[in-house]
């Protein structure tokens, strides 16, 4: 026995120890009790870090609360209607849709392409796979800051490169122009998060038996036909799952936009999370900010349910 156990044994009377052990043995012999006990820590943690803050935020959204004052004044659910009807919310919601779905589209295209590329067998394939996954390990904060630095109109390497090869005549403020800011942030964000799609797709690709392709080759299928008839049906549902998860995450994305543009230029990249942040910490209206997040939560929950009903991505994954 360990030193600690010896010490415990010396402190606690033997009779107590036997009683406790007996009681616990009875509990553990019951499958339901054991299941409950095994799940309880994770469940408690989940409730503590996810459910309770969510309920707290929903409750908060029904009150007028200043960020700088702990006094809560009841406003009621009408506040949520006011939020939905407000122009700033609707515009921000539109930007979130563009950023969320646009980013996911980019990530799916980039992620699946990368997965197909590194799935091939070639010399150094393992190294290539490891390198391909590297961006996912870099914190979004670092990517945002480096991206901002590289895209700087005065000293950014991207502008220097584009000027040198003659694509640009003068430096372009990618993050400062309304026409380019949103797309630029989407591209930088997607560079990192496309790797998530790559990870899922690659795992699925590697589970496709090689003889499927051999069979297709024997039937005279070309590369496109193999992709269409062998690969795509098998990765389709993984892509759908990845698309769902990434949409939820990108819709709520805050860090990379905040770092790169702070919602600007003007309010061109002020998506819903940035709007909520601005209202909470620049306008000091915590209640309204909580209301915005509550509305978005309901939207995303509804969208997820609808997505599962229509796309049924879980079916293929379950079979796999």
């Amino acid at each position: 026995m360990s030193t600690v156990t010896n010490r415990v044994t010396s402190v606690v009377p033997a009779e107590w120890r036997h009683q406790i052990k007996g009681a616990l043995s009875r509990v553990f012999e019951n499958n339901y009790s054991l299941l409950t006990l095994c799940l309880a820590p994770a469940l408690a943690l989940y409730i503590l870090v996810a459910i309770l803050p969510m309920l707290w935020a929903f409750n908060l959204s029904l009150y007028e609360v200043s960020t700088l004052n702990p006094v809560w004044e009841w406003t009621g659910p009408g506040r949520l209607i006011d939020i939905i009807m407000s122009g700033s919310f609707q515009v921000g919601f539109g930007r979130s849709l563009i950023f969320g779905f646009g980013s996911v589209l980019l990530q799916i295209v980039l992620g699946v392409s990368l997965a197909l590329l590194v799935n091939r067998e070639f010399k150094g394939a393992i190294l290539a796979r490891a390198l391909a996954l590297l961006p996912y390990m870099v914190p979004a904060v670092a990517i945002g800051m480096v991206g901002q630095f590289m895209l700087n109109a005065q000293y950014g390497v991207i502008n220097l490169l584009l000027l040198r090869i003659g694509i640009l005549n003068e430096p372009l403020a990618f993050l400062g122009l309304p026409e380019t800011a949103m797309l630029t942030v989407m591209l930088v964000g997607s560079w990192k998060f496309a790797v998530f799609v790559t990870l899922l797709t690659l795992a699925r690709l590697q589970s496709i038996p090689e003889n499927f392709y051999e069979g297709a080759t024997m039937c005279g299928a070309n590369a496109y036909q193999k992709f269409r008839d062998v690969t795509l049906p098998r990765i389709k549902n993984v892509i759908l799952i990845a698309a769902l998860l990434r949409t939820l995450w990108m819709f709520n994305k805050f860090d990379i936009i905040h770092i790169m543009t702070r919602g600007g230029p003007g309010e061109e990249t002020t998506t819903i999370p940035l709007l909520a942040y601005e209202i909470a910490f620049n306008q000091y209206n915590l209640g309204e900010a909580a209301g915005i997040t509550a509305v978005i939560f309901v939207f995303l929950a509804g969208w997820s349910i609808l997505y599962f009903r229509v796309a049924k991505p879980e079916e293929e994954v379950r079979v796999a």
Partner: peptide
């Protein structure tokens, strides 16, 4: 094992 270790943990 679970019972013994939990008992030890609780008493400790």
């Amino acid at each position: 094992f679970l019972a013994t270790s939990t008992a030890a943990g609780l008493t400790a």
